[in-house]
Amino acid sequence: MFHRRKVIGVMGSGTQSYRERVVPLARWIAEHGYDLLTGAGSGVMQTAAEAFVAVVGRTGISIGIVPGRVTARGYRPRPGYPNPSIELPVFTHLPLSGSQGQAPESRNHLNVLSAQALVILPGGAGTLAEAQLAARYRRPAVLFGTAREFRSFPGAFERMASLEEVCDWLLGVTR
């Protein structure tokens, strides 16, 4: 019988790491046998990938969706991508992000649709776009942080302030 791997997406700021939340979350994901999916960049993405791959004995892999462009010289990933802790880079020709994160040419569609569940941390326009896509595609997602950090995010998602709440939610949606 076919066994589909369970992939947890961790989305958030490309500049801030939110280490106090991201490190224990990524470790938990690794310790529970899930694969980790991020946008392969800096900030939350790199912190999550680093913490995930540091877990000894894990069975999951660190997957990163890498934005890029096709030029006259061939394919070019965006500078700085993938971060060093991505074990399986998925290179795309989709270059858009940030305020253009919902456009058809954005890799955010792949980020949102490839994970079984999404944990969204605070972030800018790109993270907001991922949350809006998750709502559009009816993907299981939770916002991890305080209510004030997510004032402009879709109201369709629960906002959870503790790691325990997020982990319990993940166990429920990945069964």
Rank of each mutant, 00 (worst) to 15 (best):
R138Q: 01
R139L: 07
H109S: 06
V112K: 14
T146P: 00
R138V: 00
R107I: 06
V119P: 11
T127A: 07
F157E: 08
T146G: 01
T146V: 01
A135N: 01
R107Q: 13
H109G: 10
G126Y: 11
V119W: 14
A141V: 00
F150S: 09
S152R: 02
L121G: 11
R148L: 04
N111Y: 12
H109N: 07
N108C: 14
T127V: 07
A141H: 03
G155I: 06
R148C: 04
P122R: 06
R151E: 09
L128P: 02
A135L: 00
L143I: 03
N111D: 15
A134Y: 05
T146F: 00
R136F: 06
A115T: 04
Q132M: 10
P122H: 08
A125H: 14
N111E: 15
L118A: 06
R136G: 02
A115P: 04
A115K: 04
L128N: 03
A135H: 02
A156S: 12
A135C: 02
L133Y: 11
R151D: 07
V119K: 14
E130C: 12
R138C: 00
A125S: 15
G155F: 07
L113E: 10
G145K: 09
G126W: 12
E149F: 01
P140S: 07
H109F: 08
T127H: 07
A147D: 05
F153P: 01
T146R: 08
F153Q: 07
F144R: 03
S152I: 00
G155M: 13
V119T: 07
F144E: 09
R138N: 03
G145W: 02
R136K: 09
A141Y: 04
A115E: 11
G124H: 09
L118W: 06
A117Q: 11
F153T: 07
A134H: 05
A115L: 05
V142N: 12
A147N: 00
G145P: 01
A117L: 05
F157Q: 09
Q116A: 09
V112E: 15
A156W: 01
R107A: 04
A125W: 11
A115M: 02
L133F: 09
L121V: 08
A131K: 05
R139D: 06
V142Y: 10
L128V: 03
F157N: 08
N111I: 11
F157H: 12
V112F: 15
L113Y: 05
V119R: 13
N108T: 09
R139E: 05
Q132P: 00
L128I: 04
F150H: 03
P122F: 01
L143M: 06
N111H: 15
A134P: 08
G155E: 14
N111A: 15
H109E: 13
L128H: 05
N108W: 13
Y137P: 01
A117C: 06
G123I: 03
A135T: 00
L110F: 15
H109C: 09
A131E: 10
I120C: 06
E130M: 13
R148N: 05
R151I: 00
G124M: 14
V119E: 13
V119N: 12
L113M: 14
A129D: 14
R151T: 02
V112I: 15
G145Q: 07
A147I: 05
H109Y: 14
R136T: 02
A135D: 04
A117I: 10
G126S: 10
L133C: 06
L110Y: 15
R148T: 12
A147H: 12
R151V: 01
R138I: 00
T146I: 00
